[in-house]
Simulated assay, not measured.
Amino acid sequence: MQPDCGCVVTVVPTFREMSMRRMLLLAGCTLMLAGLAACHQEGPAEKAGSSLDNAGNKVQDTLDPPQGPGQAAGRKVDRALGN
């Protein structure tokens, strides 16, 4: 039977474990930065193009109005999906 001396055992990470942790941390940070870089803001040409698209949709609705709420909803869905 071993006497209970109240000793605390600490685990010291090896060099390999520490380097793996650093590499995982670096990979995680790199992925987060890549995600931020992928964020896209519209430029002036894209804003002008979407304004033209909206104007064209308004003209279409004026010249050929939807026949009832079902067709109006269908047009909204088509425009949202880009069809």
Rank of each mutant, 00 (worst) to 15 (best):
M1S: 14
P3W: 06
P3K: 13
D4Y: 10
G6Y: 05
G6F: 06
G6S: 04
C7I: 13
C7Y: 06
V11N: 08
R16A: 09
R16M: 01
E17T: 02
E17S: 05
S19H: 00
M20D: 01
R22W: 00
L24I: 08
L25T: 09
L26H: 04
L26I: 10
L26Q: 06
A27I: 12
C29Y: 07
C29P: 00
T30D: 11
L33H: 06
A34L: 14
A34E: 06
L36H: 04
L36W: 03
A37T: 03
C39G: 03
H40M: 06
Q41C: 13
Q41N: 12
G43N: 15
G43M: 07
P44K: 13
A45F: 09
E46W: 06
A48K: 14
A48V: 09
G49A: 15
S50L: 08
S51L: 14
S51Y: 15
S51E: 11
L52M: 12
G56C: 09
G56K: 14
K58D: 07
V59L: 15
Q60M: 15
D61N: 12
D61R: 13
D61L: 15
T62P: 01
T62S: 11
L63D: 12
D64C: 12
P65Y: 08
P65D: 11
P65W: 07
P66F: 02
P66N: 08
Q67A: 13
Q67G: 01
G68C: 09
P69G: 02
G70W: 00
K76V: 02
K76L: 10
V77E: 13
D78V: 02
R79P: 03
A80E: 04
A80Q: 06
A80C: 04
A80P: 01
L81I: 02
N83G: 10
N83I: 11
